[in-house]
Design a protein around this nucleic acid. Structure first.
Lengths: 339, 339
DNA sequence: CTGTTAGCGCCTTCAA
DNA sequence: TTGAAGGCGCTAACAG
């Protein structure tokens, strides 16, 4: 009975199977057809007996293949990110990779720290869910010639595979729904646009759509996520400015929708009756909040899965031109946009 | 401008700094005081120029210290887990470890799969939110005398550090709150108890507490998380069985609370007015759901942090007897338990 | 203070 | 069909 902590090595197995390391290595690497039946049987027994597992570290060192994939997630707390993560995880499992999850907590220096970290662990590829990420970190990424896929948003001036939502279509769908429901003034709410293409595209599509409906008032505001005063003020003013009209809010992401709902509560406004509300990103509690909140659901799991597939494709040497995969959103209608 | 993919190695740096590898290694490992100023300066320059980062793989191979910690999370989708993860992450960052996150999706074989995986990456310790670790997994774990800390629940017949909630106190607090609010019949809802000590303890404490209030009806039910029929039936029957009484539900975890709220919606019952509702685990949307849902909040972040601290302590050789760390819950009162 | 050397566990020629 | 030998990048004696 081997009770010492020392992990069995390939040599131990070789000895136990009464053969050389090479054969063990072959056995481990799918070249079993090269081995005689008896040898293979011996090897199998030895491995089982010693409870042997090859060291990924030694392997990685030797072949440069670590089977590790780095994930940079801006905010693990965000349900959007969790959906993505979940899809990536599943895909990793299927493809034989292991994700190294890094939560940057929306902080730039964490981001830099983690980029170094991922490099030092020699990840074979990176998936970046850039929600909230800023320029500096992204620039840093460009330098490493590592297979990389962006999720949700692009990096300005940097060609790279992207997996994201069809923002134009989604925002148009959402806006048109509000129009159909008879809202006369609509406020588009987003976190500060910055250089985030996702936010820009959504707002642009919102505005473009409403130019086709000249009777309808289109406004937009940029609000920081965690400043409730600013948000309260924006909403209150919008509400009083258009007294007597049917008004609606269009929130550009799920985290923001939560804040908006809280703000409406504070202001004593009810979505559905006093004001319309539609938010990007599905929320598990959307149906439970008052009369329900209409959402535009992103297929996050699929997007995560697709992103990982794409990095793996790159890792395996696919050198096609940059690929942009775009998924469709789905409108889930609830009470907050009822007539 | 070095644009080739080849990462710089310690030898490259040595060459560039016109010295030997040893000095570089010393520089990297905090033995800088052993180096002359000029040499140190040369090394610094070389490292910066080559953008060199030591390979954790080579290091791990050599020293057996991978600085990797495995996390086994039962369900990454659960906000509880996310809170834990977040605390672990922060602690890892502080202590210089990197988490390898594995989501078992509540499946026992995933758990086994990941245990092997973590072993092959030679993690130095693991933190486990166990799903159903039995015999097989246990044996493997015990053999590999790997530092390990459990979160939330224990594993039957397995001595191991644990970090969890003070279930007795928490359940008592919750139950007493319901009593104080004048509820006359209370239904304790939990996923099937199985061998999960957490669930058992909560229910036990619920029952024990109510024996002190003989006038109050105590019932309990075990419902699978994703079978809405069973849940609907349980709730409907409980409701009709005690017509005319003030009734309340006590849900044993956050994921379940969500299902309960949905079920109440389907049944047309309003929490707060038709029936009381109190759930373990804080929910970000708790205040937005109708009149609000009273919750018993667990300090998840702190629990994750503490768990990681404990593994690290073990990794560093602390051989104290098994340690059980227990955190207090906090009751957050909202409309669902109002008089 | 600095450099040389011998592996860590594994894969990969190359030779038998 | 099998095995021996060398080296991946790094650290840790051991010498200078």
């Amino acid at each position: 009975m081997k009770s010492k902590a020392a992990r069995a090595t390939i040599s131990d197995v070789a000895k136990a199977a009464n053969t050389g390391k090479t054969s063990i290595s072959r056995y481990l690497n799918g070249e079993q057809h090269l081995l005689s039946d008896s040898l293979r049987a011996r090897i199998e027994r030895a491995i089982a007996e010693l409870n042997y597992r090859p060291s990924q570290f030694a392997r990685g060192l030797k072949r440069g293949r670590t089977r590790l994939i780095g994930l940079i997630i801006a905010d693990i707390t965000n349900p959007y990110s969790v959906g993505i993560l979940s899809g990536i995880e599943a895909a990793c499992r299927e493809k034989g990779f292991t994700p190294l999850v890094c939560n940057t907590n929306n902080e730039v220096d964490q981001e830099l720290h983690y980029l170094d970290l991922l490099r030092s662990y020699q990840v074979e590829g990176i998936v970046v869910n850039a929600v909230g990420m800023r320029e500096e970190g992204l620039n840093r990424l460009q330098q490493s010639a590592l297979p990389m896929v962006l999720i949700d948003r692009k990096i300005p001036d940097f060609d790279c595979d992207v997996v994201g939502l069809d923002n134009i279509q989604a925002a148009a769908t959402a806006t048109e729904h509000l129009v159909e429901q008879g809202f006369e003034a609509i406020l588009f709410l987003s976190e500060p646009l910055g250089t985030v293409n996702t936010r820009q595209e959504r707002r642009q599509a919102f505005q473009d759509t409403l130019t086709r409906y000249p009777g309808i008032i289109a406004e937009s505001a940029e609000v920081p996520l965690y400043d409730s005063d600013i948000l309260d003020t924006a909403l209150r003013q919008f509400h009083t400015r258009h007294r007597g009209m049917r008004k609606a809010l269009l929130s550009a992401n799920g985290a923001l929708t939560l804040q908006v709902a809280r703000s409406l509560r504070r202001l004593g406004l009810n979505w559905g009756s006093d004001i319309g509300l539609l938010g990007f990103d599905e929320l598990e509690w959307a149906e439970l909040a008052g009369v329900g909140i209409t959402t535009l659901k992103q297929p996050t799991w699929q997007m995560g899965y697709a992103a990982l597939e794409q990095v793996v494709r790159r890792i395996e040497g696919h050198a096609d031109s940059v690929r942009e995969q775009v998924f469709s959103g789905e409108l889930i209608i609830r009470g907050s946009t009822a007539r």
